[in-house]
Simulated scan of single mutants.
Amino acid sequence: MKARRTTSGLPRAGGTTPGRTNPLGTPAGRRTRVPAWPGASPRRATEARRLAEGAELRQGVRYRRWFVVLVGGVLAMSVVVVLLGTIGLFAETRARPLTPGEQHRYQQEEVARRWQAWPASGVFPEEVKYLGLDRAQQYARRVGIAPAADCRDAVDASVAGALDEHGCVTLLRATYVDQTAAFVFTVGVAVLEDEESRVAASEALTQDDRVGVLPVAFPGTATERFGTEQRQRTGWVGAGPYIVFSTGGYADGRTRVAIPPEETLHSELWPAARSIGNQIAYFLADPPKVPPCTQGNVC
């Protein structure tokens, strides 16, 4: 007799077989102990957003505070640097007594720029005094001033080499006649770069009194016959950065070779020429008055 199958051996729909476990390991038929995840409510989301914004704001405030401190430090350092620079500039530029070295340099610079700063009539005065016969004071009169020339073009070749070697800048010339218009004199001022160059050039110059500055004649005057051959003697004197040349001759055109060796020059000719050159050299190199302070007469 066949056993009757019943439905009691089959698992019930939606149920579990007694004595078995589910796949998670809990006894079949029991409820899980893990609580369900609560859904986020609008109130909780708003609170979380507010807390996040507060934390972000506090962080921004900290960054801003550090930025302000950094900028303030940079500005403070800039103010200190500017203040120290101002104090140093004031200390450097305030009036103070000139040192001996500064006084000497002031005089050198003032003398060296006179050939440019002075007018032509300042370098070559209209009248220059000299001592004539019996030491009588007389005056030589300026006839004309020649344009500034290259040093090599205004002196003899043997003199030009020494000047060029030591940096001659330019050469200024003017011609004078004595009080009787019997003698003619040309004075030449060679401008060197500085006094040291002038000393070196002077040491290299020849002592030959037949060479020196080239004469300048002005047509229609007592000087028109005064040329290179009419020079009776030449000479020079140093003054600051200048070498002042002088030469003299007769206004009637007599040449040097035309005068016999036994015949001497007129006793007034060469002393007058040398005196005129020395006077112009003295004017150029006369030490100027030095202010006692860096900004004038008040320290």
Score class of each variant (00 low, 15 high):
Gly212Pro: 09
Thr228Asp: 12
Phe283Val: 11
Gly212Asn: 08
Glu203Tyr: 07
Pro215Met: 02
Phe218Trp: 01
Glu268Met: 02
Val189Gly: 10
Glu195Met: 06
Val257Gly: 09
Leu284Gln: 09
Asp252Met: 03
Thr206Ser: 15
Val189Asn: 07
Ile243Leu: 15
Trp236Phe: 15
Leu205Gln: 03
Arg233Trp: 10
Pro271Met: 10
Glu196Arg: 13
Tyr242Gln: 07
Glu263Asp: 13
Arg210Ala: 13
Pro271Ile: 10
Asn278Gly: 12
Val237Arg: 10
Gln230Ile: 01
Gly277His: 07
Pro260Thr: 11
Thr221Pro: 04
Ala204Met: 09
Gln279Val: 11
Glu224Ile: 04
Leu205Cys: 06
Asp252Tyr: 03
Ser197Gly: 08
Arg274Gly: 13
Phe218Ala: 00
Phe226Ile: 06
Gly212Asp: 03
Asp208Gln: 05
Leu265Glu: 11
Gly277Ala: 01
Gly188Asn: 04
Leu205Val: 05
Gly227Cys: 05
Ser275Ala: 15
Asp252Asn: 14
Gly220Ile: 07
Gly235Pro: 08
Phe226Thr: 05
Glu203Val: 10
Gln230Met: 01
Gln207Arg: 14
Val187Pro: 07
Ala285Leu: 06
Ile280Glu: 06
Val211Met: 00
Ala190Asp: 06
Thr223His: 13
Trp236Leu: 00
Leu214Asp: 11
Ser202Ile: 02
Pro215Val: 06
Ser267Lys: 11
Ala204Leu: 07
Gln232Ile: 06
Thr221Met: 04
Thr186Pro: 07
Pro288Asn: 01
Pro260Gln: 06
Pro261Phe: 09
Arg256Cys: 02
Val211Ile: 12
Arg198Val: 13
Gly212Trp: 08
Gly238Ala: 15
